[in-house]
Write a protein that binds this DNA or RNA. Structure first.
Lengths: 148, 148
DNA sequence: TTACATGTAATAATATAAGTTACAACTATC
DNA sequence: GATAGTTGTAACTTATATTATTACATGTAA
């Protein structure tokens, strides 16, 4: 099981918008970098737009960042692309037997524990900005040049 | 997206083994409490057995805990039932375009960030033992009695 | 030998993800 | 205003994973 790659693609898109700031970032252009279909990009872009992270308009080619990169965290992207619902990272079997002590209490006992673990993960995502991601992309790019 | 309920069921099973310590916990008995099919229980039980958490033997009815409850954490169960592979909680789009600066570096940049978030979640699970779960189950049971 | 349990393979039903096609709605420009 | 090119979106396909279920081999105790 893995969380949908929409999240990774969302990060890819925002990074690309920054690095291609001079040019026009159409869905086709972005799809070429991500290596997927332009429609997939437009769907994800729509989510990023709803979350106020990018500006896109029908008929007009190219998307732009709606906020400073230092004010967009991975958690913002994660929430924007809707990959995991609140308190639902961990699936729980429904309708356990109410005639059993464990069955009638397990959900209430497990729920908070699962929420806490999910929040710990999300907090970690909230500590990283897209600005840092872009800086690291450029750093890795330069490292590779030196290696050649 | 949700992590397979095998994890929740695994916790349910271990708790039930403790609370039903006096009786015989056959796969049918457990399935009745979880509200699922006995085969599902046997499959999960097999994973718990491989991880050294329970003792079960072919032909002999009933399973038993293989360790003290205070020495089994939620993380142990999570790993036992194999719901998330190492470093694979977050899906990443494969083969992004190597001709693009972002495309050829995004995986190496994102990877460690995703791993860190996953580890934060897993660390949280490692802080809770099944013993605590059982205590909370009993506590909630008594609270409900008072409410009646 | 019988009754009953676990182990496991095979299958079906369901849900979600990701890719794709098709087309409506919109904008700029000629 | 007609055209070319873009975004927005619905519909469909394919692939994969989960969960439930059936069937049966294997193992144990009485």
């Amino acid at each position: 099981m893995s969380i949908s790659s929409r999240f990774a693609v969302g990060i890819h898109i925002l990074s690309l918008l920054e690095i291609n700031k001079g040019g026009v970032s159409s869905s086709e252009y972005i799809a070429n970098s991500v290596n997927t279909n332009p429609v997939v990009i437009r769907k994800i872009m729509g989510m990023l737009k709803n979350a106020g992270l990018v500006n896109v308009r029908p008929g007009i080619a190219g998307a732009e960042l709606a906020r400073d990169l230092s004010e967009i965290t991975l958690l913002d992207v994660y929430k924007a692309v809707n990959v995991v619902q609140e308190k639902e990272l961990f699936g729980v079997h429904d309708s356990p037997n109410p005639a059993c002590l464990v069955g009638r209490n397990i959900q209430n006992t497990i729920g908070p524990l699962f929420s806490e673990a999910q929040l710990a993960m999300e907090k970690s995502l909230g500590n990283v900005t897209i600005e840092e991601v872009v800086k690291d992309l450029l750093k890795k790019e330069n490292q590779n040049k030196v290696d050649d």
